[in-house]
Structure formats: structure tokens, C-alpha cells
Design a protein around this nucleic acid. Structure first.
Length: 126
RNA sequence: AAUACGAGUUGUCUUAUCGCGCCGGCCUUCGGGCAGGUGAGGAAAGUCCGGGCAGCGCAGAGCGCCAUACUUCCUAACGGGAAGGCAGCCGACUGGCGACGGUCGGCUGACAGACAGGGCAACAGAAAAUAUACCGCCAGUGGUUGACUGCCUGAGUGAUAGAAUGAUUGAAUAAACUUAUUUAGAGCAUUCUAUCACUCAGGCAGUCAACCACUGGUAAGGGCGAACCGGUGGGGUAAGAGCCCACCGCCCGGCGGGUGACCGACGGGGCACGGUAACCCUUAUGGGCUGAAAGACCAAAUAAGCGUCGGACGCGCGGCUGCUCGUCGCCAGCAGCCCGGUUUCGGCCGGGUGAAAACCGACGCGGGUAGGUCGAACGAGGUGGUAGGUGACUAUCAUCCCAGAUAAAUGAUAAGACGGCUGGCUUUGCGGCUGGUCGACAGAACCCGGCUUAUAGAUUCGUAUUGCAU
């Protein structure tokens, strides 16, 4: 599959974001896997589309906008290059999430290889 | 050449793979696809000033609040900038006995007003705001001490003169060498007297010095302080003092120069007028408030409301008069009308009459949520030339179009180059080969003009110092 990352794959709606980050919601699945915390949401009616994702980097940890930009771009690249793992050749056992949030939780800027490693594990787990 | 300081410029590059936003073009099964173009900064940062723009507010005036504060200019505007003035500091040269000044260069300055008014000033110090007098200096008075001078008294010493006594010596005489006597002279010693000198003691007087006390003069000097009532040199004085003089500084005056801040020489005044306005205050000037999450528009959903249509349900049953129709009654239609109670009025209640509304559905309007569009990328615009201006800057001509996202693009990875640091091998050396590591500060968000702050490295110019060569 193509390694694109278009607008439809980005989660922009404030409403869905609010739903995703609402505490205690049963519809939201979550797990932690270094260096990310993942939040995801299923909506059955939109079946085979790619999920819309959002990446967050905490401002508390990284004061400079330059640093946050760098991390976000690395994470995005890691997702873009590895999102084919969401569609294993033997077929999915669980329904594909429609909305996905990637929260960067590491305390410092880490290299692209490490981010990619974590991203692969996370996508396989999904 | 190196280093330091100041002013400026710049602030990594290339290729490959996979991607992203925007633009117009083509294709499209309307989901999108294709190739092309384009895509972070000097500070995009801080959000400290100023403006554009937008909404709201707004008769006029006053008070309050905030900001600014040497002058002139620049600018859309500014708390920004330019040029200039003044003050302070530093450097070089230079004049003067000195206080202090002159010229050039650099740096710094919230640099309006302290006779409009009020307030404040720790500690130290004698004294801190109508000055004062601690030490000191000077004069006078009194006392003490000392020194000197003069006089008086007493004592001592010495000298001179006289007298007395004593021995000695010379001469003469006598006697036996020696001795005796006489005589005069000389000096010596002692004593006394007188005079003189010196020393000591005492007294009196005077002068001087030191100390103490008091009275007065003084503010030169010392000392205190952030600051204390002009400074220097001379005269003057008991000591001193603008007390007097010259100069320096200050104040006042008109004159001249400058757009102005201010400057200049001249004349006058012996000199007063302390600091703090970053305490209140005064004066002058400016400021309406809020910010693009402003604001405008489109608009799924959806509440109230409105309109149209349709449906369903309910109401209709009181009285009188007249007219019409009618053979009369009954019935029907038309027209008109109120009645009672309370109340100041408006009006209210009940009844009556008439009308409307109330229910459901559909559609439309309206409204505006999700979402979207604009605001919002041609501008106080960039670059170059010409002209004006000391300059900030302005005018004009030519030329260019240069990010536009919106949970927010401008990237990720790899390789190489370049530069810095560093290790190894090699070379007399220049250098060569090879490995490692690092490549600053920092990411547009409505747009401009400034200010401030951050910044590895490279580089230009100027100044200073040092080294080398000539």
C-alpha cells in the first residue's frame, strides 16, 4: 500500500477529540507502549477506511516549539512508513479503529529508529 | 599576522528514496489522480511600544487616571530613529604659579520645573537648613610656673685702693767667718674698711614663654559626612574673613549670533539662591475601550417564533328590537344592541355576543450548532538607478511578486561534501591517508514600523595593543 498521509487521515474534529480524551469513556480503548500511550475509538459504520490519527507532544516536557515539531514529525513519519502493519496479510481479527491518538510520553527527544521500533510494536498490537 | 573593542554582512551545501501544505493547468468513475511551480527567520522569539484593520462607544466642558519630558527634524505613528546642544567621565595634545581652562576623539545621561506649595534626610558630626563653633588660631583679664632685665637686702668669691700685723728680701753699721741692730724700699700672707665685678638666696617691678580659667574675636586650618554656605593667587589683619584686588566659577542685565536647545563678548553684583520631583506636586503634550478567539458571510442539526396548506377535535342551545321572506305560527336570513357588580382613571371580574388562539402533520421563513468561506497574503512592499538632504529620510523612474497553514504544511531517512575539535599512521617539513565527534539561537499564524533578548561558526571595515618583515 502507498505510504501517503493525507488530510483524511488526520483527526481534526474538536468533537471527536473531546470524545477521545474524555475520561472513563467505555468506547475508548487504551494501552501504553514505550514511548507512546495510545487511545483509539471504533465507529462501526465506517468500515474499511484508514483511521484518523492525532499526535500530541506535551508542552510541559518540551518548552521549545522547535523540539515539539521535530518529535511530531518523526512520529508522523514512523506511522506513515509503517501503517501497512494495520492490514496483515492473514486478515484482521479485531475491527480497525476509526480514530487514534498517539501521546508521546518520553521525557527526552529520542532518535527515529527507536520511535519506529515502538511504532511497529504498537501497530501490530492494534 | 594575532588579540581586544566598536559598527556591519552572513549564518552550511549536494544527491537519492518516501512524504506534506498551497497555486494555477489537465484528466476524472467526483473518491481522487497526473505532471509542473512554490514553501520559515534575523531574530519567525519576548509580546515591551507605535500604527493599519475591525467591532462597540461618543453633544460640549471639567475632574480623575496612564504615558511621555534638552532642541530641531524624520515618520502613518511611536516610549523608535537622525542631527545638534548641554552635563559628566575617559584618552591625546595644549595654556596657566594656581584655581581652572582650550582643541580633537570616544563613551554615558528618565537631560522640564526645587523663588507655586507641602513633605523628607539614617549614621557620623560641634553643627544638617532663619547655620553653628568641638579642636585649633588670635586678643584681653586673672592665676600658676619658668626664664631674662632692673632695683633693694643678705651671704660668699674675686679684683683694686688704703690701714694694721707678720715673716721674707735689699742696703747700711757693728762684731770673728756668722750673728745682731738700724733704716728705707720692694713684694708676699693674714685681717679690716671702701669700691667694683661675679655667684647664690629672698623681695619688688617689668618683659617673655608655657599651662589653666574666664571673656571676646575668627571661620584660614583640622576633624564628620553623600552633602555643611564659592575656589586660586596676592594684599591685609591680633588672628582671620569677599575685608580688599586680580583671575576662575556663580548670579543679573541688555546686546550680538542661532529655527531652537544654547553660545559669545561686554557691563554690573562681592556672592546671595544646599539636596531630593525614581515622595507628593506643577507645567506642557498625547491617550475612548477591546483585540483577528476582532469582525463579516454561507449553513447540515436544532429551540422559540412567524406564514401557508391540510387534518382532527371542540364550541354553537340566553334575550330584545327592527327589517326581509312567508297567508299566520314554526323555521331561516340580514341589520343593530349590550346588561350587572367593583373602581378616581386606566381597567378588572362575571355573564352575553363576536372574533381569535389553543392540537397534530407537511412545507417555507427565521435562527444559528457541527462544518465551511471571507477577513488573509500587492504591501506605509522588495531590489536597482537618479535627484534632494550632514543624516534619519523623501521624491521619482525601472523592475520583481516573495510562505499562507488552521489539532496547524514547510519533513523523515540514508550517503557524500564543507567547516571546527580530536585520535591513529606517515613525512625533515609543507602536507597526505584514515577513524570518531560536533555543526549555533531558534519554527510563520491578520499585517506592518521599532525596541529588547538569544545566537556555534564564517567574514568586511575602523580603532588600539603586541609580534614579525622591509
Amino acid at each position: 500500500m502507498r505510504q501517503t498521509f493525507t488530510k483524511s487521515e488526520r483527526l481534526c474534529s474538536k468533537k471527536i477529540l473531546g470524545e477521545l480524551f474524555k475520561k472513563g469513556s467505555t468506547a475508548v480503548g487504551t494501552f501504553y507502549l514505550f514511548p507512546f500511550r495510545l487511545l483509539y475509538l471504533n465507529e462501526p459504520e465506517s468500515a474499511e477506511a484508514l483511521p484518523a490519527i492525532v499526535i500530541t507532544v506535551p508542552k510541559r516536557q518540551f518548552k521549545r516549539a522547535v523540539d515539539r515539531n521535530l518529535i511530531r514529525r518523526r512520529v508522523r513519519e514512523a506511522y506513515r512508513l509503517n501503517k501497512h502493519l494495520l492490514f496483515p496479510p492473514e486478515g484482521r481479527s479485531r475491527p480497525l479503529p476509526t480514530h487514534l491518538a498517539l501521546l508521546y510520553t518520553a521525557k527526552q527527544i529520542i532518535s527515529f529508529e527507536e520511535i519506529e521500533k515502538g511504532m511497529k510494536l504498537a501497530l501490530r498490537k492494534l
